[in-house]
Write a protein that binds this DNA or RNA. Structure first.
Length: 569
DNA sequence: GCCGTTTTCGGCCCGACTGTTTTCAGTCG
């Protein structure tokens, strides 16, 4: 069937273009004092559209039911139809014509928060986005309005190509399916940072096997209703998705599949280490032998197979040559959870429900670590209530089967380094997780001394999220990890890898340092609901990148051993 | 506006603390 003449058919819109209209509407509605939940609904819908493999434009034209997409109901579905059919949204155009010229101009940059921008305009005596950009470059925004404001403007003006590994996990299967089902690839394997399980992914790399690679590349430009092609030749092609993320397709052939996969998985440092050791991948590529799997490549090189998580160019090649690589921790090796919240503070489920969820996951024990009294916002537990909780858990344990609930708390490390409960109460707990939740602004020395002092309390068991970082959102506070490691070792304290997808704190690098000092690490989810116990896989990914074996992990040990290790007094 | 239901309306974190952007917005979980 022929397409109708161009003049009669509105231009096809990419999901990115459609999502931008929803975001602009949300932004302008926010200046009109609209219901914040309505605004959030538009934003959520825009996000959903951005990561959708199918073209919204095509879905509308084929009269598909858009409300099947999570976050899209009758209202927004109607808006999407209007955008596709007419090219614009009346509600948005009306708003643009009624608001001030400054705000109307801002709606072209829907990720900018108008309230904040107007404050900047006022402070710096400017009135346009062009001037805003100029001030940003000069550093005037950071200087006069603070780094947070600078960060906001920067992130809103510049499309970010970085996403959390956790979010990448959501979109990778859709891309893979699209490559095979729609683009006609025989096989598509994800490589790069994602495969090495790096916490923040900057680019997705797929190795693609296809009879007609250029055809795959051509069809991939239709992903998400339109994906920008940045470059393409007969071996590789680069794209930018609606979400801003870069995707690279690398051509792979069955006979050399393992070799291509290895080269595309990297990291560069790992490949360089292989070269330094006289293992030229290029030579292998030219050779006649088949290298259909990575195992075959490493075998040929006389190396033990190296897990992707270890391929960072540290000592993994040397160790592989000596066949001395660690057997990395797995989710199956985890025997219990040591950091989880309940409805006693800010968790979604009761202690008993959490215990049941832990038991379902095959755990032997679950530590309930609700927030301590100072952390009001998170419903911190009063002393009196913690005493009650201790007695409650003792009773609960007499009737629970197959799981032991441990009595604990996530105890705030106060600004002076003291702990947020009196010693006689801490004494009654099986162990403690001690964390910083306030005064992030202290300098490195003060922050370190604050934690050192906390570690000197004999009831301090392990340090929760050591730097307080939130990936892509907030840098952590500064700490002197070496001094902390030294004191932890002297005092019998431990560290956690917080598995929350945007924390992953300790980082892999920090976890490596801690472990190399001979200190065991707890991999904890910090679950605030039963479902969040599954974040454990994210923490395990980090631990694997740090080269940790089960023996180095506290909660890979049986109950009695964990209790013995954690209790210092 | 979406969602889910002990279905068609009520909930969707929120609330104390902080501090220099200065008296309200940003911050913490």
């Amino acid at each position: 069937m022929l397409d109708p003449p161009a003049a009669l058919a509105p231009a096809r819109l990419s999901n990115a273009e459609i999502a931008t209209q929803l975001l602009s509407l949300a932004q302008l509605l926010s200046t009109q004092g609209e219901n914040p939940f309505k605004i959030r609904a538009y934003r959520r819908a825009a996000e959903a559209i951005k990561t959708l493999p199918e073209s919204v434009d095509e879905l509308v034209r084929s009269d598909a039911d858009l409300t099947q997409i999570s976050g899209i109901g009758k209202g927004i579905s109607g808006a999407l139809r209007e955008i596709v059919q007419s090219g614009s949204l009346r509600h948005l155009e009306t708003l643009r014509s009624t608001v001030s010229p400054e705000l109307a101009a801002l709606s072209e940059y829907p990720r900018l928060d108008p309230k904040r921008v107007l404050r900047i305009y006022k402070k710096l005596g400017i009135s346009s986005v062009a001037e805003l950009k100029a001030k940003l470059e000069e550093g005037a925004i950071a200087e006069q309005l603070g780094i947070r404001m600078d960060q906001h403007v920067r992130q809103a003006l510049v499309e970010s190509s970085e996403i959390l590994l956790f979010d990448a996990d959501e979109i990778v299967p859709g891309i893979q399916r699209f490559l095979v089902a729609t683009c006609g690839a025989k096989r598509a394997a994800v490589a790069g940072d994602f495969r090495r399980r790096v916490d923040v992914v900057r680019e997705l790399v797929f190795v693609v096997e296809a009879d007609d690679f250029p055809a795959v590349v051509e069809k991939f430009t239709r992903f998400g209703g339109g994906t920008e092609e940045l470059s393409a030749d007969d071996q590789r092609a680069a794209f930018r998705l609606s979400s801003g993320l870069r995707v690279t397709l690398e051509r792979g052939q069955a006979a050399k599949w393992g070799l291509t996969l290895l080269a595309c998985t990297g990291a560069l440092g790992h490949l360089e280490k292989l070269e330094e050791n006289g293992h030229s991948l290029e030579k292998l590529a030219e050779a006649r032998e088949k290298y259909a799997t990575e195992e075959a490549v490493y075998r040929k090189l006389g190396l033990q197979y190296i897990e992707p998580e270890l391929r960072e160019g540290r000592d993994e090649v040397d160790r592989a040559a000596r066949h001395a690589l660690p057997s990395l921790v797995t989710v199956e090796a985890i025997r219990g959870e040591l950091h989880a919240h309940s409805t006693s503070s800010d968790g979604a489920h009761s202690i008993e429900a959490m215990a049941e969820a832990a038991r379902e996951r095959g755990y032997e024990y679950l530590g309930i670590t609700d927030h301590s009294q100072s952390l009001k916002i998170a419903g911190g537990v009063s002393e009196e209530d913690l005493w009650k909780q201790i007695r409650y858990i003792d009773k609960l344990n007499t009737r629970l089967r197959g799981i032991r609930v441990l009595k604990s708390a996530e105890v705030d490390i106060l600004v002076d380094g003291s702990l947020d409960y009196p010693d006689e109460l801490l004494e009654e707990l099986d162990y403690t997780v001690c964390s910083i939740h306030s005064k992030f602004g202290l300098d490195r020395k003060k922050q370190t001394e604050r934690i050192l002092r906390a570690m000197d309390n004999p009831h301090f068991s392990f340090l929760g999220h050591a730097t307080g970082r939130l990936l892509l959102k907030r840098n952590g506070y500064e700490i002197d990890l070496e001094r902390l490691i030294e004191r932890a070792k002297a005092n019998g304290c431990y560290f956690e890898i917080n598995s929350s997808p945007d924390r992953l704190d300790l980082s892999a690098e920090h976890a490596r340092q801690v472990s190399e000092a001979g200190i065991a690490i707890a991999i904890c989810t910090d679950a605030h609901s039963a479902a969040e116990l599954d974040f454990i896989r994210c923490g395990v990914d980090q631990a694997r990148r740090a080269g940790l074996a089960p023996a180095a992990i506290l909660n890979c040990q049986p109950l009695m051993k964990v209790l013995r290790l954690l209790k210092r007094t």
